[in-house]
Design a protein around this nucleic acid. Structure first.
Length: 274
DNA sequence: ATTCTACCCTGCAAGC
DNA sequence: TGCTTGCAGGGTAGAA
């Protein structure tokens, strides 16, 4: 999936097409994704104007009167804005048709082969259970080395698992965890509670730099991800660690190690990352 | 409280 | 060519 840069790229692509526009019709071709799509989505959205498209963690929120449509892309989901007569393809599960400028209607189409994504409803004034207990946004001031250091004391889980815990910090998945740890020179295997304050400062800085730069490149496209206008992300060619097991380390040229940490494949340099 | 394990689903590449 | 196997960017639930 889509980690934070891909979701943010999606949000930026959607916003100009959706904000201020009125929803005409909702089509559910598949009533269940990861969870059943609640009846409010099809029943209450038509006729409503979309005020804003926001992102929290890896979730997208489309605000209308009375609440927000809450959308997660899972592992393989993508959203595109298309002309309404665009033929439907495999795994096109949901359409949200909106009015367009000069009567040019568009459709927001949700495609998700693996159906790990979801489309849910958050009533106004409530915080959906999925959004409760999330950590700070990595690009916010609340996320820094001191925060990571204090929170990690006593934690025995590997620092990579800690960094990917959405309760610690949101938006960092398998790709960007590997990249950030490489940039910070920290072994992904090290116990989170055994990393120094100084090195957490470097890690928080690395996370911010990697995510920020990936957003400017439109995210990372491995196979599924595509932005709302159909363009892939261009960060893949800049990956230093992810997917490069056995290849020479970009820094020291020694072969990169690969192993499974917390059920996720991880690549790192045994010489540059301690 | 933290940390495991199993599970959700489809597509694709590698190996035979 | 075709079959089987394993793996993939996500996250939850329930158990240990």
């Amino acid at each position: 999936m889509p980690e934070l840069p891909e979701v943010e790229t999606t949000r930026r692509g959607l916003a100009p097409h959706l904000e201020g526009r009125r929803i005409r019709e909702v089509t559910l071709r598949r009533p269940d994704l990861r969870w059943p799509i609640p009846p409010e989505i099809a029943r209450d959205l038509p006729g409503q104007r979309i005020a804003e498209v926001r992102r929290r963690a890896k979730y997208l929120l489309m605000d209308v009167d009375g609440g927000s449509a809450l959308l997660h892309l899972g592992m393989s989901g993508s959203l595109r804005v298309l002309p309404v007569d665009t033929p439907v393809r495999a795994h096109d599960h949901v359409d949200i048709a909106v009015e367009g400028p000069r009567g040019q209607a568009r459709v927001l189409r949700f495609n998700d082969p693996r159906r790990f994504g979801c489309l849910l409803w958050q009533p106004a004034g409530e915080v959906h259970p999925l959004l409760q207990g999330l950590g700070p946004e990595p690009l916010s001031d609340a996320f820094d080395g001191d925060y990571l250091f204090e929170l990690s004391r006593g934690r025995k889980a590997p620092v990579k698992t800690f960094l990917m815990d959405q309760g610690v910090v949101v938006g960092v998945g398998n790709i960007y965890a590997a990249e950030s740890l490489f940039l910070a020179g920290i072994s992904p295997l090290r116990a989170a509670g055994k990393v120094s304050r100084e090195r957490y400062v470097a890690l928080a800085d690395a996370v911010k730099r990697i995510l920020g730069y990936a957003i400017t490149r439109g995210g990372t496209t491995l196979r599924d991800f595509i932005s709302p206008d159909g363009a892939p992300g261009y960060f893949e060619q800049e990956l230093s660690a992810y997917g490069r097991g056995g290849e020479p380390c970009p820094r020291c040229r020694r072969p990169m190690k690969e192993a499974s940490i917390g059920q996720r494949t991880t690549v790192w340099c045994g010489h540059c990352q301690k």
